[in-house]
Structures are given as C-alpha cells and as structure tokens.
Amino acid sequence: MKLEVTNHEIQVGDVNIIGISTSSVFLIGDTDCIQLTSAFDTPAESLLIGPLVPIASEVG
C-alpha cells in the first residue's frame, strides 16, 4: 500500500483521551515512517476481550 499525505499547518487546542486499546498510536505532528508489526501466539480459546480501561484522570 502506498499512502501519500500533504501536510498543512495544524493547531491543536485540547485533547481528551478517555481510554486506549492494548495497541494504540496517538500522534500529532510529522513522522517519516510508522512500521506496524503483530504477532499472535496465544491459543484463541485463552483470548479475553473486554471493555476499554479508562485512563486515570489527574487530581489537582
């Protein structure tokens, strides 16, 4: 797959993330290369899929 992106100016105000998955990428800005690799060596019957776990918010 070939993906070509033309970047323009970006301004980010606030970001509110309430949960993440076990494999996540959050990126603001530029990058030259992102390489994704996956391996699965667990028997399917032992795989547990549950709800997202919220990120603890800061107390201040």
Rank of each mutant, 00 (worst) to 15 (best):
M1A: 13
M1E: 13
K2E: 07
L3R: 04
L3M: 01
L3N: 08
L3C: 02
V5T: 11
V5F: 09
V5H: 04
V5A: 06
T6H: 07
T6V: 11
T6N: 13
N7P: 00
N7F: 02
N7I: 12
N7C: 05
H8P: 02
H8Q: 07
H8I: 01
H8F: 02
E9G: 05
I10A: 12
I10D: 14
I10S: 10
I10H: 12
Q11K: 14
Q11T: 15
V12T: 07
V12L: 02
V12H: 00
V12F: 02
V12M: 04
V12C: 02
G13Y: 01
G13V: 06
G13P: 00
G13W: 01
D14H: 12
D14E: 13
V15K: 13
N16T: 09
N16Q: 06
N16S: 13
I17C: 08
I18N: 07
I18Y: 10
G19A: 14
G19Y: 03
G19M: 04
G19I: 00
G19H: 04
I20R: 07
S21L: 06
S21R: 00
S21C: 05
T22V: 01
S23D: 13
S23N: 11
S24T: 15
S24N: 14
V25N: 14
V25S: 12
F26N: 14
F26G: 15
F26C: 14
F26D: 15
L27R: 14
L27M: 11
L27W: 07
L27K: 13
L27P: 00
I28H: 06
I28P: 02
I28Y: 01
G29H: 04
G29R: 01
D30P: 03
D30V: 07
T31Y: 07
T31A: 08
T31P: 00
D32H: 09
D32G: 14
D32Q: 14
C33D: 10
C33N: 14
C33G: 10
I34E: 04
I34V: 08
Q35T: 15
Q35I: 08
L36Q: 11
L36P: 01
L36D: 09
T37D: 09
T37V: 05
T37L: 08
T37N: 08
T37R: 03
S38N: 08
A39N: 14
A39E: 15
A39M: 14
A39F: 12
A39S: 15
F40G: 13
F40N: 15
F40C: 12
F40L: 14
P43A: 07
P43H: 07
P43Y: 11
A44E: 08
A44L: 14
A44C: 04
A44N: 12
E45D: 08
S46C: 02
S46K: 00
L47I: 11
L47H: 05
L47Y: 06
L47F: 08
L48T: 04
L48S: 07
I49C: 01
I49G: 06
I49Q: 10
G50A: 07
P51H: 03
P51F: 04
L52N: 08
V53L: 08
P54D: 01
P54M: 00
P54W: 01
I55F: 00
I55L: 10
A56S: 02
A56H: 06
A56W: 02
A56F: 00
A56K: 03
A56G: 06
S57R: 13
S57P: 04
S57I: 11
E58S: 10
V59F: 01
G60Y: 05
G60T: 10
G60R: 07
G60V: 06
